[in-house]
């Protein structure tokens, strides 16, 4: 950060004499904006984020981050609901929320540890298959068996 401030201040100092002359003569506003833009460009260059989402120019990354947090909070809220109002509604909600939370969490682990284009693709594809089977299995358990809430209650009653 300190280095950044230094670089941008150097940039300002280096450019100013030229721009100041032009500002006194012609277009002050344009000159100032140019100067500002330039330091911004340098800042952006240094701050290039090594992320899968970088360069897409979208809000996908921050939207994903926010969704993860929202889901975590929803999952926290589901615990008391599952305890006080067990039933199919919360069973299927848990199946979906637990699967998605696990899918995103494991996806983050893969992002951290798996490198190489092909390996990343393979890992993500495998994770998708695993999550799909997990969700299907949990739904099947809710449909044809006792359901998640009852399963935990039975396990704990032994």
């Amino acid at each position: 950060m300190a280095a950044l401030v230094r670089i941008s201040s150097v940039c300002h100092r280096g450019v100013k004499p030229l721009l100041l002359r032009s500002t006194t003569l012609a277009r002050p506003l344009a000159g100032l904006i140019k100067d500002h833009d330039r330091s911004c460009v340098i800042t952006a260059k240094i701050h290039a984020t090594p992320s899968n989402y970088a360069g897409s120019g979208s809000k996908a990354a921050s939207l994903h981050w926010t969704s993860e947090r929202v889901l975590s909070i929803i999952l926290l809220g589901m615990a008391p609901v599952a305890y006080y109002y067990p039933g199919p509604a919360i069973d299927y909600s848990l199946a979906a929320a637990l699967t998605l939370h696990g899918h995103w969490g494991l996806g983050q682990v893969l992002t951290d540890y798996v490198h190489g284009d092909l390996k990343i693709k393979l890992a993500n594809a495998s994770l998708f298959v695993l999550s799909a089977f997990t969700f299907a299995g949990l739904c099947y358990f809710n449909y044809s068996d006792v359901g998640i809430c009852k399963a935990v209650a039975l396990l704990w009653s032994k």
């Binding site: 637990l98 699967t99 696990g102 695993l130 089977f133 997990t134 969700f135 299907a136 299995g137 949990l138 099947y140 358990f141 044809s144 068996d145 006792v146 399963a151 039975l154």
Partner: peptide, 16 residues
């Protein structure tokens, strides 16, 4: 959770 879910799909018999 995944092991439990896949067991539910694959294994015969029910949970209780």
């Amino acid at each position: 959770i995944s092991a439990f879910a896949i067991a539910a799909l694959v294994l015969p018999g029910d949970y209780p």
